[in-house]
Each structure stands twice: as C-alpha cells, then as structure tokens.
Design a protein around this nucleic acid. Structure first.
Lengths: 119, 119
DNA sequence: CAATAATTTAAGTTATTACTATAATACAAT
DNA sequence: ATTGTATTATAGTAATAACTTAAATTATTG
C-alpha cells in the first residue's frame, strides 16, 4: 500500500503524522505519545509511512529521527491540516482509535515461561 | 468505516465515485462499467459509500439510481478530481484494481449441482 | 567485551475487507 | 398468478491490517 490516500486513511498513522507535522521526533518520542500500543506497533506504522514516502528517517546515534515529508502529501496535506484544526474531527479521531483496535486485544500476561518455537 | 477518507481509500469505491461524478447512474449501469466483479460486489461497495454519506439512492421502478453527494467530500472532492485529471494516476488505478483483488479468486465453475447447505 | 538502551524484525492472533455464489426481495410485464 | 428483470441480502472464503510478544540488531557506555 504505497498510496498516500490509503496510508493516511489509518487514524493511527494520521496520529503519527500529526506529531511529526510539528517537527521531527525520534521513534521513542513518537511511541511515548501513544502509550496504548507497543513500540513494535508504532515501528511498523512508521515503516508503512516511510514506504509511502510520507516520512523520512535519519539515524542519530542509536536513535532514529523521523520527519514528515510534507511535499509528498500534496493537496492532502491541506486536508489533514484542516482536519487537525477542526475540534470535531479531533473527537472523531479519539473514537476511531478506540474502535479500530483490531489486532489481538492485550493478552493477560503469560503465566509460565515458554521456550521459543525455533531453537 | 463511515469516514470519508477511509471510504475513498479503496480504488474500487473511487472508481464508482468517479462514474457518479459525471452524473447519476443505476446500479446496473455502474455494474456494467466494472465487468471484472459481480453485481453483488458492486452493490456492497455502493452500500459502503452510502453509509459514508458519499452517495444517495433513489428508487425508480425496479431500478435504484445512485448519485454522488459531492458536498459530503468537502475538500477531498477536489483531491479526487485532481487525481482523475492526472493520467498517471489513471494508470495507477488500473494497477491497483488488478493488485487489490483480495477476495477469493474466481473459482472454477461448480461441476455438480450442490444442494444448499441450509434447507 | 559485557550490559544497557533504542529500535527493528519476526511470528502469531484476530477482526475486517473484498470478493464469491446463491437465495431472497421488489417491481414489471405477460 | 407466473415469469422475468433489477437489485439487495446472506453466508462463506482468502488476503490483509493492526496489533501482540519475543527475539534480533545496532549503537552507547562502563
């Protein structure tokens, strides 16, 4: 899915993009802004955004700094900005993030150590 | 998914919307323009578009006439129009429609009559 | 080099999507 | 009423998306 429209259709990716709109952030900072998901989840969405050309990464020590590639969005950039300015949209986003959790719900902690399935 | 962004992220729905942009069409006419899928598939996407408020239906005899609800798209309408005007985008659409066939591939015809699984 | 920190990668799970085929419905025409 | 036409509805299926946990990678630091 390297298409910009499909990429920004995801509320989670929009959330990330919104953060980066304000300025570059390390992966960790981005993750910190979304405590409801794991680092892995955020990292994956970052890669999706990258593949779509909507963000760029740069390594800085052990950190990876992401920034939004505004130009790549073209007229969609303005659409996003309008969404973000609109407080009604903001409420909708919160609702969507809650509703669109479709991966496995957080599992209860594993009770016993399990050995890895591949040696 | 009653959100406009997510709704127009689908190339198939965009194709339908594009048709309706030119003027209202019956479900049958829409279906005729997309011979690669069944009537059922088109009907479903029409319902999705309807739930998102992007199209409106009106019954005319046994026919259902659909029309695009341009206003509901807001600034996204202009984005779509730009896409459609751009010939490069047109090529991409064709590619996407081919690529994004993810339901079951057309099965070979049933060889023997099967009775229905529920009486 | 070992330990820690930051992040990515991999594999597994579940819900959703975009289809299919077929049955059901609504209206029209004979 | 029966038959035909237009369309929707339902149930089933394969692929995908968004997450999870856990392991692997890469750089920093003691």
């Amino acid at each position: 899915m390297s298409d910009a429209l499909a990429t920004i259709a995801s509320p989670r990716r929009r959330e990330i993009l919104r953060l980066l709109w304000a300025g570059e952030r390390s992966a960790g900072e981005i993750r910190a802004a979304m405590p409801d998901v794991t680092f892995g989840a955020v990292s994956q969405q970052l890669r999706t955004l990258e593949r779509a050309g909507l963000v760029r990464v740069r390594a800085q020590g052990a950190r990876r700094i992401y920034r939004a590639e505004r130009a790549a969005l073209g007229p969609l950039g303005a659409v996003l900005e309008r969404m973000w300015a609109d407080s009604l949209w903001r409420l909708k986003l919160a609702a969507e993030l809650e509703a669109s959790r479709r991966g496995p719900r957080p599992r209860r902690r594993a009770r016993t150590a399990r050995r890895s399935h591949r040696p």
